[in-house]
């Protein structure tokens, strides 16, 4: 009996080498699969809660964007009526992004658009206006948000003049925009117009990089159409600065809504992918477990049948060596 027991033990130990390598490997990876399943489940929980947070923030951000957009439209009205007679080449680029990632490709889309604008490519967001006055590749660039800053510093590091962060964590306020505009004015960078590169909210699932041009004081003064306006106290300088703050505010709110919407979508996709992964891993795990169980059963049955083969023979070995053999082999 003890010898038989030893044999089954031996059998099991040598199984990985010869008898059933598949089942044995499953036994080894079952634990790994379980660990992976656990971590994927955790990731899904995180992405799912990020999605829920982004969804609630999105509703607020979209409301802020509606108001901000109207504010921007009213602000841009004066620029729509004052076409510049002399094309300006002295542009200052302000890139509107934010500090946080995990929101799809919206930061790189504004970065790419800025690079395209600086290189005067055909699909640059400024393509319509740069026909007669190409963008100077050395144009100064300012960046709001660490994400785009990190991307732009590699390609156009020499152009960067100012960068801002800590803006756009929550809904942008007018104070944020006024602060940025104030620093731009104080920075001493000379410009005829400011080009704001931002993400435009097309729909809840699509955004495209766009640009908004704000004319500076000099450019406004030089425009003939601007002279048609009655301007008694000469408030041109104030108007230019106020307009810049307004435009920054409008683009900040729109960019923020895009970011939240994009984050929601990205997290939704991540949760879905995690769900799929959990499905396949669970299947693999169950199969492996089943295989291990089957293997064990096979071992047990084999063992049992061997025992039932040998036990009777041990019993009858003294009297009738061949008695009972056919009956006991097939229980």
């Amino acid at each position: 009996m003890s010898m038989l027991a030893r044999r089954t033990v031996l059998n099991r130990a040598t199984a990985p080498l010869a008898a059933a390598p598949a089942g044995a490997r499953n036994m080894a990876t079952l634990r790994e699969i379980e660990l992976r399943l656990k971590s994927v489940r955790n990731i899904q929980k995180i992405t799912n809660s990020m999605k829920v947070v982004a969804s609630t923030k999105l509703a607020k951000a979209q409301r802020a964007m509606q108001a901000g957009k109207q504010y921007g439209i009213a602000n841009a009205e004066v620029f729509a009526h004052t076409a510049t007679d002399k094309p300006s080449t002295n542009r200052l680029f302000v890139v509107i992004s934010s500090d946080k990632g995990l929101c799809g490709g919206i930061h790189s889309s504004v970065t790419k658009a800025t690079r395209k604008a600086l290189n005067n490519t055909e699909d640059s967001p400024l393509a319509a206006t740069t026909a007669e006055a190409p963008v100077d590749a050395e144009s100064p660039v300012m960046v709001i948000g660490d994400k785009s800053k990190a991307q732009l510093i590699r390609s156009v590091g020499g152009n960067l003049r100012l960068t801002f962060n800590q803006i756009g964590r929550d809904i942008p306020t007018f104070a944020d925009a006024a602060g940025v505009a104030d620093l731009i004015v104080k920075s001493g960078v000379k410009y005829d117009s400011v080009v704001l590169v931002y993400n435009k909210f097309v729909s809840a699932i699509s955004y495209e990089p766009a640009s908004m041009v704000v004319k500076g004081e000099e450019a406004l003064r030089e425009s003939n159409a601007f002279k048609a306006y009655e301007n008694e106290d000469d408030v041109t300088k104030d108007l230019a600065e106020f307009s810049l703050a307004n435009a920054i505010f409008a683009t900040l709110t729109e960019g923020h809504a895009c970011e939240q919407s994009s984050r929601r979508n990205a997290m939704d996709n991540a949760s879905k992918n995690a769900g799929e992964m959990i499905g396949t891993l669970q299947m693999q795990y169950n199969r492996g477990r089943q295989a291990a169980i089957t293997n064990e059963l096979v071992d047990i049955i084999t063992g049992a049948s061997v025992v039932s083969i040998f036990l009777p023979s041990l019993q009858f070995v003294c009297s009738h060596p061949l008695d009972g053999w056919p009956a006991t082999t097939m229980p």
Binding site: A64, Q66, A67, G68, Q70, Y71, I73, A74, E77, T173, F174, A177, N246, F249
Partner: peptide
Amino acid sequence: LSLVLPHQSIFT
């Protein structure tokens, strides 16, 4: 008339 505030549009 368009009377707008940063956080609200009163008239558009």
